[in-house]
Design a binder for these strands. Sequence first.
DNA 1: ACATACTACCTTGTTATACAAGCTACCGTG
DNA 2: CACGGTAGCTTGTATAACAAGGTAGTATGT
Lengths: 107, 107
Amino acid sequence: MDKQMKKGVLDLCVLSVLSEEDCYGYQLVEKISAAIEISEGTIYPLLKRLQKDGLLASYIRESSEGPARKYYKLTPEGITKCKRLRKEWFEFYNGVNKLLGRGNGDE
Amino acid sequence: MDKQMKKGVLDLCVLSVLSEEDCYGYQLVEKISAAIEISEGTIYPLLKRLQKDGLLASYIRESSEGPARKYYKLTPEGITKCKRLRKEWFEFYNGVNKLLGRGNGDE
DNA sequence: ACATACTACCTTGTTATACAAGCTACCGTG
DNA sequence: CACGGTAGCTTGTATAACAAGGTAGTATGT
């Protein structure tokens, strides 16, 4: 999968998954990579950035199965951002699909 | 609109529009910006890159309405690439929509 | 005791690309 | 002759995805 396609959309993916339930980083990697290719080296810096921007808050919780987990949850700003990005995403892919629908290099 | 979202998808947009008919750069800007926000500073370097990569060929044609126009058309490699990117794009946005469908920060 | 594997977190350096800003130049109209 | 529209192009900047590497806890096998 083209790396570049994911730019900007991964923020939305993370925010959207977190709008459903609090998750720790490793869990997010698993959830998101079930839908699109993603690696740890992408998610952790991204989480840090989103937290720095005030969109996420975090808390540590111990685990009996391994190291302690750092859970992230949306802040009110995160919820707002998530809504706006969702809207942008839908507008964006509808626009792209409009362009693609006309030209057809295959089918 | 988020700049980052467009990364990687614009190649596909250009190739897809060109798969329908030959276009010159300025025309591509107009066509594509009707669907998603785009600027000249993005399209021209992109066309150059796609041509360098052997996906596009170009020819000059005079215009009575202004300066000569540089038309671009797909090469066989360009057609192949267009097909592959289309497939990737559909897989990608379906994956994203799957993630978004679950979490809902709005609606 | 030691190696291996899985969980879980994090950082550094590389690479690609979108775009603002700026430039040149042709044509027609006022 | 100035101006706006058409048409092309370049340079510099900012951003983000990811490979590759590191740390550390828990559990299993030998």
